[in-house]
């Protein structure tokens, strides 16, 4: 009976997870260190969706959050303490994440619109249940 509501909610949860990933990408677009402080640029994350709610029901769920292992962008900053050391082929360059903020913002917009669509579907499901009730009343 609450199938359509559950499906819409699963879509909302999935899109929110996707927006979290996009927000992390945007926040880390200039991150050149890893969590322990070593020079290791942040790599773009992206969510992969799969149908079903993960336990046999219908809907959508986040199958995994993958790491995009594209090569980092090189920026010439020879005075940076995190520049590539002398002797390496790209000495004097600093590795930056290969994250395009424009792409991320478009993705965020898309996730927001998809979330809105799921909210509309949930509203429709609620309104249909209320209208069915009005037969009895």
């Amino acid at each position: 009976m609450y199938n359509s509501l559950d499906i819409a909610v699963s879509g909302m949860v999935a899109q929110r997870t996707r927006l979290n990933t996009i927000a992390a990408n945007l926040a880390n677009q200039n991150t050149i260190l890893d969590a322990s402080g070593n020079p290791n640029p942040y790599q773009r994350r992206f969510t992969v969706f799969a149908p079903g709610d993960g336990n046999g029901g219908s809907g959508v769920h986040v199958q995994s959050i993958e790491i995009n292992d594209a090569p980092p962008k090189l920026r010439w900053e020879p005075n940076s303490p995190f520049a590539r050391p002398e002797g390496s082929p790209d000495a004097g360059y600093v590795y930056y994440p290969d994250i395009d903020p424009v792409t991320e913002q478009i993705d965020a917009l898309e996730a927001q619109r998809a979330y809105e669509a799921n909210v509309q579907a949930a509203e429709a499901a609620k309104s249909m249940m209320a209208q069915a009730l009005s037969i009895l009343a």
Binding site: Y2, L5, V9, R16, A122, K126, A130, L133, L136, A137
Partner: peptide, 25 residues
Amino acid sequence: DLETVLAATAKADNAFRMLLQVRNK
């Protein structure tokens, strides 16, 4: 997960309305 909580609230609301209508009948 705000969505799931709100959906649970909507379900409870709808179920109670249904029960109320049965009771009224």
